[in-house]
Nucleic acid binder design. Structure first.
Lengths: 97, 97
DNA sequence: TAAGTTGTTCAATAGTCATAGAACTATTAT
DNA sequence: ATAATAGTTCTATGACTATTGAACAACTTA
């Protein structure tokens, strides 16, 4: 099933809400939202007090829900919020966070 | 912990998102949103194709997340969306559903 | 090339969630 | 009283989730 097909269905909504239904992932989102500079996985994980593998697990969950975007540069991966998904499925949510 | 204290914290957000992260519960919300007349538990459960005990389980989850309100009349319980919670934590969500 | 950095994947584990059916409570109607 | 109706709670079960540490892969630098 493509992302386009998922978008139209409850399954995608469920995936988004599952991704948001976790304290660590909310912290990750809050960290990304609040940072003035671009952050990599390690920096975000550290600020959220998650172990390396645990942080990676949460990044995958967020990425598969379309909530973050990842840019790779050498061995480092930089993360940012996928604003469009929030705008479409959760208008106003980021502001309330 | 009171609802007032929960409101201020991530824990309440997590509870809300967990409550929304299920297909049956999204259907319940959609059913309540779309109905012109007041519906009771049995009617909602039937329209969402959930067994009696399963529907009751989902109603509890939604109620504990503050997403529905229940009014008892004789042996029947009527359910409605708790609009205020949606307005506060999920502005625009019901419209997008 | 060897060592260091950054991040992912695997395997194991403990905890939570969704589901069904049976038993139960509360209320109404005969 | 008895039976019928509307929901809830209990028990068991299978599936999924979050977490950790170890092993791995990719890239950089000494």
């Amino acid at each position: 099933m493509t992302i386009e097909q998922l978008n139209a269905s409850d399954e995608y909504r469920v995936r988004i809400f599952k991704a948001l239904a976790d304290h660590t992932r909310l912290q990750i989102i809050r960290t990304l939202k609040g940072s003035l500079t671009e952050l990599n996985c390690g920096e975000v994980g550290e600020r959220c007090e998650a172990s390396k593998s645990n942080a990676s697990y949460h990044f995958r969950t967020l990425r598969e829900a379309g909530l973050i975007l990842v840019r790779k540069e050498a061995q480092t991966k930089y993360i940012q919020l996928h604003q469009e998904t929030f705008d479409t499925y959760l208008p106003g949510f980021l502001d309330s966070l």
